[in-house]
Amino acid sequence: MSSFDDREYDQSDTAQGSIISFLSRTGLILLQAVCLLLLSAFPFQIWNLAEVRPAFFLAAAFYWAVFRPRAFPPLAAFLCGLTLDLLYAGPIGLHALTLVVAQGLVRSQRRFLIGQSFVVLWMCFFLVAGGAFFLQWGVHSLFLLETIPPRPLVISAVLTGFVFPPLSWAFYGFSRLFYGPRG
């Protein structure tokens, strides 16, 4: 069993350091969760984008699972997913499941992903987004015992892939803000 996943080079040797680190971690999670939640619930009716809304939280789960696993732990992903589930009108637990599964998968491949160029990472994110939407489609169809038309889902998955670069840039900014210039 490798200790790679949980190794972090924090300055949290002292008690004070660990409190600050804990607070900044929690602050980071809360701040980005609120931002992403607003994006996820924003009335895109105006731009006819409602049907194919990208999965913003998936990008967050992917980015942090690769670059700083402890900044977005599984419990945070679960709670964010659950909030989305309560806000949306689908089965409760659906987004929580997708986020936790996607994050777990990415974490297990972190050793491979962390050394890759951004383009390779981006392609991997496309794969993860496709898988996540397929999982959501399957679980939701089972929930309704009826096949949901898959077309908007495919478009959503592709759109999710395309929002990854700007979002990862934003996460990088978050990361610098909370952890200093080392990002």
Binding site: S40, A41, F42, F44, G90, P152
Partner: peptide
């Protein structure tokens, strides 16, 4: 808001 996206 128009939550639900592709599903609902």
């Amino acid at each position: 808001s128009d939550p639900g996206g592709a599903f609902v």
